[in-house]
Amino acid sequence: MSRVAVVTGAASGIGLGVAEQFVADGYHVALLDRDGDAATTAAERLAAVGAKTLAVAVDVGDREAVRAAFDQVHTALGPTEILVTSAGIESFVPLLDLTPQAWDHMLAVNLTGTFSCVQAAVPGMIEAKWGRIVTISSSSAQSGAPNMAHYAASKGGVIGLTKSLARELAAHGITANTIPPTLVDTPMARRGEAEGGVPGIDVIAAMVPLGRAGTPADIAGACSYLCSEAGGYVTGQIIGVNGGMYI
């Protein structure tokens, strides 16, 4: 039986890497992203190798749109059994320049968006008495980060949310874990580099104990394990896939 996996932020970066891995694992995969065209392109490419995929354009910051998206997944593929919440935004703003609007938007997408997706997916998991949830948080929430108070706070909330999910949902056969990456070479990271928010990717990569930036495939490999039968006794954990950058 092929399980149904939903990946948010799946049109590029970590989310796309996870979607590709899940196809290799034999799952039916729904790719959710605010860039519907890019999600469709990715879904069609994966379908061309025989996978059953679905692309849905959705902004996870819109709760009603999230619910409609999961209804669409249910109709096309079946109940969601696996959820990876990779959709997120980042920005670099000094604390005293942070506006209430910037703060609210960051939390609406990164934290409330994660919550909305989980809330939409969990009923099917409870009914099946089986489920896997992996949230993508950030090591910035563990270490703090200058000019990113709003981002670090939103991702810290994701870590707390995930631990609470693990406690509440364990009796239903559902696991919940979070992966907080450090440096991953993604289009979003490259945009941050181009905008001057972070030093060069190569500069930071040299500081990583393993000597390189992470890749979407690195994160996807961990998701693959956590969402498998073999990962069924791992829940409520912060799984650091970071090359030793944060220990």
Rank of each mutant, 00 (worst) to 15 (best):
T40C: 14
T41N: 13
G240N: 14
A120K: 03
G156S: 07
D33T: 04
G78P: 04
G26Q: 06
V73E: 10
T53R: 03
A205R: 10
D185R: 01
M1T: 10
M125H: 09
D33M: 04
G156A: 07
A120Y: 04
V73A: 13
V93L: 02
F92S: 07
D104S: 12
V4E: 09
A55C: 06
V109G: 11
P216N: 10
V4Q: 12
G144N: 01
K163P: 09
I159S: 11
M188I: 00
D185M: 00
T178S: 10
L32I: 01
D25I: 04
L83C: 13
W130P: 01
V208R: 09
R3D: 06
A19G: 14
A57M: 02
C227T: 14
A102E: 05
G232F: 13
N177K: 04
Q21A: 11
A206Q: 08
V203Q: 11
A51S: 09
A206K: 12
F22K: 05
K52H: 14
G131P: 04
G192R: 01
D202M: 03
T40H: 15
M207K: 14
L77G: 11
A102L: 03
G236F: 12
M125D: 04
L210W: 15
D25F: 13
G9E: 03
G236E: 15
D25W: 09
L98H: 12
E193W: 05
T182R: 05
V203Y: 14
C223M: 05
G231P: 08
D218R: 05
I219E: 08
T80K: 11
V66G: 12
R67I: 09
L165I: 03
R63L: 05
I136N: 04
A30L: 03
